[in-house]
């Protein structure tokens, strides 16, 4: 259950609090709970003086708001009604079966987000069209990188290189007019905005280990994006003498 919250992008304090409520609902008063983004550890004192510990390893965290919402609802419901564990498992399985958006839909979403961020930062229609294409390419690239199990640094690096290349092609063909607007619009989909806010919330609510852990991750992604954009741009400028 806690795993469900964590994997789908819940904050650490929410996970710990939920498991705590959970234990109390089933009559276990002094359970010890510790969670960081990679693991959840729960220890329950047994009747015979021995303690029982379970460790859950969480490997992948992806933002999935519908599931987060549903698991959160389930938590509330369980704490109020204390059903059989079997029932809870069935419900959790149902939640994990809910369908995701298809690849094509997500790709278009990336494109739309990139195009409107491009408008938003002051690009014109030609720029937005190039940004739309760059957005499509980004998602395709991220998907492919996920398939070959590339790490987070490399997949962001390659995706932002793709963005820069698409933007340069757009400029050369004359469709786009502002290189910076296109690139800014398109990298907004990669920039870890979620990370930044969740970090501060974690740190301020006292989960400093989690916070520092995520800061490292966000810094890594930011550097990957910067390097990925910089490589094609400076390469192009050296080859063709700084026309952009």
């Amino acid at each position: 259950m806690g795993r469900g919250l964590l994997e789908n992008g819940g904050e650490i304090y929410r996970v710990e609090q939920a498991i705590g409520f959970f234990m109390r609902a089933y009559g276990i008063e002094d359970a010890q709970i510790f969670a960081i983004p990679a693991t959840i550890i729960v220890t329950i004192p047994g009747d015979d003086g021995k303690a029982m510990t379970q460790l859950e390893r969480v490997t992948s965290i992806a933002q999935n708001m519908s599931r987060l919402h549903k698991v959160n609802d389930l938590c509330r419901w369980v704490c109020e009604n204390t059903p059989d564990p079997q029932v809870i498992y069935e419900r959790l399985n149902d939640i994990h079966k809910t369908k995701l958006y298809s690849f094509a839909e997500v790709m278009i979403a990336y494109g739309v987000a990139s195009a409107f961020f491009c408008y938003f930062w002051g690009g014109d229609t030609g720029d937005a069209i190039v940004a739309f294409i760059a957005g499509l390419a980004t998602e395709y690239c991220l998907k492919y990188m996920g398939k070959v199990n590339a790490n987070i640094f490399f997949s962001n690096l390659v995706s932002s290189m793709v963005i820069a290349v698409v933007a340069i092609i757009g400029m050369v063909t004359g469709l786009g007019h502002n290189l910076d607007m296109i690139i800014i619009g398109a990298i907004m989909t990669l920039v870890p905005g979620v990370g930044i806010t969740n970090i501060m919330r974690d740190i301020i609510s006292g989960d400093v280990i989690t916070g520092t852990n995520k800061i490292a991750e966000v810094m890594l992604i930011a550097i990957a994006i910067a390097v990925g954009i910089a490589l094609p741009l400076s390469g192009f400028n050296t080859l063709f003498g700084g026309v952009l």
Binding site: R14, F120, I187, G193, I225
Partner: peptide, 28 residues
């Protein structure tokens, strides 16, 4: 529903994507 849902989407327009880009540009 958890407030995170609205928060994450809501802060997106403010995320300094432009800042990161210009920082990188001046760096190169």
């Amino acid at each position: 529903t958890p407030s995170t849902v609205f928060l994450i989407v809501g802060i997106l327009p403010m995320v300094p994507g432009g800042g990161i880009y210009y920082t990188m540009e001046y760096c190169i």
